[in-house]
Design a protein around this nucleic acid. Sequence first.
DNA 1: CATGAATGAGTTTTCATTCAT
DNA 2: AATGAATGAAAACTCATTCAT
Lengths: 218, 218, 218, 218
Amino acid sequence: MPARTPTPAATTREDVLTAFRRDSLLAAARRVFGARGFDEATVDAIAAEAQVAKGTVYLYFPSKLAIYEAAFSSGLDELTRRTDARVREAATPREAIHAFIDERVQYFQAHPDYFKLYVVEVGRQLTDRTPRKSGCRDAFGAHTRVLRDVLARAVASGALRDVDPAAAAMAVFDITRGLVARRVLSRARSDAAAEVAFLTDLMWTGLSPTSVPAGSAP
Amino acid sequence: MPARTPTPAATTREDVLTAFRRDSLLAAARRVFGARGFDEATVDAIAAEAQVAKGTVYLYFPSKLAIYEAAFSSGLDELTRRTDARVREAATPREAIHAFIDERVQYFQAHPDYFKLYVVEVGRQLTDRTPRKSGCRDAFGAHTRVLRDVLARAVASGALRDVDPAAAAMAVFDITRGLVARRVLSRARSDAAAEVAFLTDLMWTGLSPTSVPAGSAP
Amino acid sequence: MPARTPTPAATTREDVLTAFRRDSLLAAARRVFGARGFDEATVDAIAAEAQVAKGTVYLYFPSKLAIYEAAFSSGLDELTRRTDARVREAATPREAIHAFIDERVQYFQAHPDYFKLYVVEVGRQLTDRTPRKSGCRDAFGAHTRVLRDVLARAVASGALRDVDPAAAAMAVFDITRGLVARRVLSRARSDAAAEVAFLTDLMWTGLSPTSVPAGSAP
Amino acid sequence: MPARTPTPAATTREDVLTAFRRDSLLAAARRVFGARGFDEATVDAIAAEAQVAKGTVYLYFPSKLAIYEAAFSSGLDELTRRTDARVREAATPREAIHAFIDERVQYFQAHPDYFKLYVVEVGRQLTDRTPRKSGCRDAFGAHTRVLRDVLARAVASGALRDVDPAAAAMAVFDITRGLVARRVLSRARSDAAAEVAFLTDLMWTGLSPTSVPAGSAP
DNA sequence: CATGAATGAGTTTTCATTCAT
DNA sequence: AATGAATGAAAACTCATTCAT
């Protein structure tokens, strides 16, 4: 990484075009894979969606699986980047939880195709025998890292009661995922603010230190 | 032929064999579909798993999709039946939440193949253009009905604070799903009691009426 | 053929039953093959039509092809027998031609399924690489033998002009076949007498010795 | 690429190649369907006959049935066109009958594969439950239309006796078909002139107005 | 670089035939 | 003799991938 391509001015017309084509193909792939799943999607359909010939796809990606993984990863990267940024900006743990839920709901609402791709991939990971070489697998763990760290600090400072921050972050992650799934599946177009607020409140209350002793174990 | 066996239940050897074959095939289908997903699974593989010839499969099911739906539905029925029973038996709302989470974690832990099939089906539903005729789709809504009713009564009686019972039930459903997913994916064999207890506590605390005013909005 | 089975009393109950079953199967086969053609017909369908189990079919015939050939031949035998009888009874060549056409039209009208089987078999014979071992092939030649002989005698006696009797018999055969095909295809139920009379007249006139010199060659 | 070839007819190399492939496939299909019938023919065999891979066939035709119908129709169109032309050119009714028989015998003699395909199709039409949408069915009726019109005019002008022109045309059609069938089946290579002349004479004589009263009905 | 025609491996499904009961 | 469950070979069709233009 010390020496990038030594031609600083090398970002030629070519490169721009190439990058543009790649992005077009990834966007097309997200739409097609999201709409049909991995197996039902055809390379032909992706090419048509991107308005290029089928052969062209193979100039940019070595295989259908590679397109899929690139499409999945590129979306995931952006989602994670945005989520992490908003969580980091949050002034309080409560706001961090709210930011996490809100950002993800908004992102997926704006990119329902990608949500489908995302869900399909979770299914693939569960059912795939060949352990995914690409970073897909680990990527999932990274989703909640920033939130977990925020919660860990909150527990340490006494702002939250003494829970496992990782488990708590996962719980927030899961209810977010469930909310998004129902909204995407039902093609909900309404504002999700009320539902986001409810889940934020539910989690925050559940994690607050001021809660009552909670009685005996079940 | 003079005297047909007067078995009152008319359950002949044939019937038993037929039922056995059907069950063997469904079990094989659950394993194969769970391991590979719908598209990657082949009827050949299911037949081999059930130790019959390919043609035999078609004596019991009219198509690959029919096998899949039967395998999915049969497991779902049992899961729902067991979950509902345990939730109904619960003496308190807190116990109901615990029963819901605990039963489902135990069931899926005992049938990891079925959990994969279950996840795969969620993916299919998202990506399927042809609305599934079979009860698969509606079946999902029914998962939380009993729990929702319990929570609704608890809200009415003041045992819980004033939340939307359906949304609360969904939250419980989602964190359960997340827990199971992580345990199945990581092939966890350990006892899930601690994690179940944590989630029960989290939800119960979050829903309790004694919670603090919760401060300002996020 | 001089010594039939030397047990004259051997026609037991068994034999009768066996013969009955064979005939039932042949009748069923004629219906099914006639309705669907050879390839589209299934042994299952024939068994069902004959109200026996599939395995039973194989007790009476060694293969699907054998059933087909037996069904075809049995019908053909009857048709030829009846046609020959009526042609032989005819007092004049004109009546012989009429008898030939009339009998065949009536027979096929009464057995439309068999006509389809008959047409399909003609197609098969044309397209079959493996020369039919059974008598099917030669059987066709025999259709017009009796009519041909009648015409030959008529030519010899001067009752008809000097034509090739075989070619003339074939012409009568062909127009009969065409008439039947159109009637069966259009499911005609009306009386064919007028059409039979027309064709008889057409052929008779064409073959009569009193015809004009016929002018120049075409 | 700066200047697209401004070929006014736009018949590029591509188009020629495509048309060539299509024709090759149709010719192969005629041979294979003619040799084996519809059901016994495999797409694999057609592909092999045309020296292309199986998948290639599906680039030009959507299904096996579509290939079959295209092969059937293309041949039928040419046959009908040629027959109609020769019949129209004929100066007299007798010549029209001769032209009809002669042209068809010659065409089928030159394309025996197509004759088999033709016969197979007749069998299919008889046994097909699903009424053929394509023009195959109606096409048969059109075969004799031109000849029928010629005969109708001849009847009107008194050149022929008072017969149903349609029935007469059918009779000519049927004897032609029979002659061709026997020649193709026996792989006759000899000149058919004598047989054609005989049938022409037979029909013409049968239809001539100068015929004797023909005696009593049979 | 871009194209899209060609390839052929792989999948579902059917059905003639066998054989244990 | 009769049954019908089991078998597995065969065939239509799809689509990821390649490569000549």
